[in-house]
Design a protein around this nucleic acid. Structure first.
Lengths: 331, 331
DNA sequence: ACGGCAAATGTAAACGATTTCATTCAGATA
DNA sequence: TATCTGAATGAAATCGTTTACATTTGCCGT
């Protein structure tokens, strides 16, 4: 790859001048500009983003970090797509860090990102006290949180109103006439899990239904936990007539467990999932779900991050997007 | 962030010596080594990967590029996970480039990756003549292809035997007694689409079934194309009794179209998909599918890439993993 | 005719590492 | 004692940029 030096030599100018036309930062004679552009074209010169990043340590590196807990969860994939679209439009590129809900791995990735001199970070913290992300934040690096907030610090966040979404969903279930609505929640350490559970509880209470603690279980947000807990619920003597699942993967696990027992949805048990998927209509019956605008969450987060890189002083924004109950046939 | 210079100063040595203990490349007195390690700890020093990358241009940068056509396709997500695991184990980090089957975007990303001085690239080329990836290859950068090969050049590839997988699947369908087996294929420019179609044709032929060209359609590998073409097939006067879909997304689209018409699987139409998903059992009925070991493809590709970075001269390997027919209930 | 100003360009110091080529010094060898 | 050897270290160049700080030149006003 040609370097700036070679361009300068070929154009018969100094590298400073080349840099100037590249960043059109300063006035340069039209004629020399042409000469330089010509040399650039002829040599197929491409600036080294690495050198640039090393030299100017302030948001000029065009590199973003994305730290997410589980890339196999379709929700985060969609978020990632949103981020990527914005990044691409702005000539940024993304280092993908999938920490798999493993705090050690999260820490390692954050260290690496720092050492990579990223310009900004989009993260879904492991939990809301996450000291590592907080440290990052304190170091002055632009950070935007998605899906999960951070307690006690001022930071941009993009998420949905989890409690409200769950509340609406469960209210809908109650109105449909379901009486024994079970809930399989995700990891209690994840804020959204708790909020969704809160929404569930509040809906039951507001509608005068008794809360049966036996119908509430919390697992680790995985597919397997969905299978397992649904199995247990279905084996109960007095089994629930409806199931509200706490996320994508749990929902899918639940469906597997129900299928396995050849039970009918919604006849034997209705299912409503938090998190929609692009292919919810491919399920049989099509899944009724609380749709988070995942792609848009990513997009907004990307926009906020780039804004903050340009203007580190702007006040923090907590952006709450609306979830939407997609009524299909499973409930 | 502390720099090597500060460490050197605090330890009372030169940066050269610090570098030496960091890479334990040369002999250094045990006592000074201790002093330096102490200084490193005290300053929480972390080497800058950027500076390192700039200086030593040969695989020491610990940065990989991953170029995939569609990150919303669960297959590639699993591949990515495999790559990530290996990368993480080896202290590499990944720049994720999702080119969305858009060749312009692919080109832009490749330029950026070059400018980022990555140590190696894992790519699923847009098509088998892809000139951009070939150029990359010629430039001497370690490249491993996944899922899709590259014609006329020597390159590491990890994939499955698509033709054989399709052949087995369709043979199975025929043995099950299906007579009018339709096929919705992916983009014909993608090699795997063609190979799967070949396998389909060969199976019909070998079993003495007549090939009805009306039952063969090729779309653009998307979910939408799955819905659309399945719709058309189902509307035929003499509709097929079974459907072999060419990839993940097409399968899901097909299921949506079938569901929409309240047809029974496999009673009205059997479905067998190329590409399995982690949650195929959550589908109703559970999907019979050709399983590609996606995670392992990613893992192997990662391993091959790192090997090649260490030894650029080693002969190229074409690694063909076995696909597996997962018989469930949809066919 | 001269100081001053602005446009156009160049010089050289960073950024934070790696690496080549000295240099120092002790102990071994002849 | 003079020389050699090798271990331990340092000085300085280098990677490819940006940028602060000159320098040159022509033009203007007085």
């Amino acid at each position: 790859m040609a370097s700036m030096n070679e361009v300068a030599k070929r154009a018969g100018v100094s590298i400073a001048t080349v840099s100037r036309v590249l960043n059109n930062s300063d006035s340069v004679n039209e004629e020399t500009r042409m000469k330089i552009l010509k040399a650039i074209k002829e040599l197929k010169y491409q600036p080294s983003r690495v050198a640039k990043r090393l030299r100017s340590k302030s948001g000029a590196g065009n590199l973003l970090g994305v730290l997410i807990p589980d890339i196999q969860n379709p929700f985060y994939v969609d978020v990632l797509r949103g981020i990527e679209d914005i990044a691409y439009q702005n000539n940024y590129v993304i280092i993908m860090c999938n920490f798999n809900q493993d705090e050690k791995k999260e820490a390692v990735y954050l260290d690496i990102l720092e050492s990579e001199a990223i310009d900004g970070l989009i993260a879904a913290p492991a939990h809301e006290d996450d000291p590592r992300i907080k440290k990052f934040l304190r170091s002055g690096l632009p950070v935007v949180c998605v899906d999960r907030g951070l307690k006690g610090v001022d930071v941009d966040v993009v998420w949905v109103n989890n409690e409200e979404g769950a509340y609406q969903a469960v209210s809908y279930m109650i109105e449909k006439g379901y009486k024994r609505i079970a809930h399989i929640g995700g990891l209690p350490t994840i804020p959204s899990s708790r909020l969704r559970l809160d929404g569930y509880r509040k809906a039951l209470k507001d509608h005068g239904l008794e809360i049966d603690e036996n119908l509430i279980v919390q697992g680790d947000s995985t597919y397997t936990s969905g299978i397992e807990f649904t199995g247990k619920l279905l084996n109960m003597a007095n089994r629930p007539d409806a199931l509200f699942t706490g996320n994508n993967l749990i929902t899918l696990g639940a469906l597997e467990a129900v299928n396995e027992r050849k039970l009918d949805i919604p006849g034997d048990i209705a299912v409503l999932g938090f998190d929609d998927m692009n292919w919810s209509n491919a399920l049989n019956p099509p899944l009724t779900a609380v749709r988070q605008p995942a792609y848009e969450i990513g997009k907004r987060a990307g926009e906020l991050l780039i804004q903050r890189i340009k203007d580190p002083k702007r006040p923090c924004i907590q952006m709450t997007l609306n979830s939407e109950l997609k009524v299909r046939s499973s409930c």
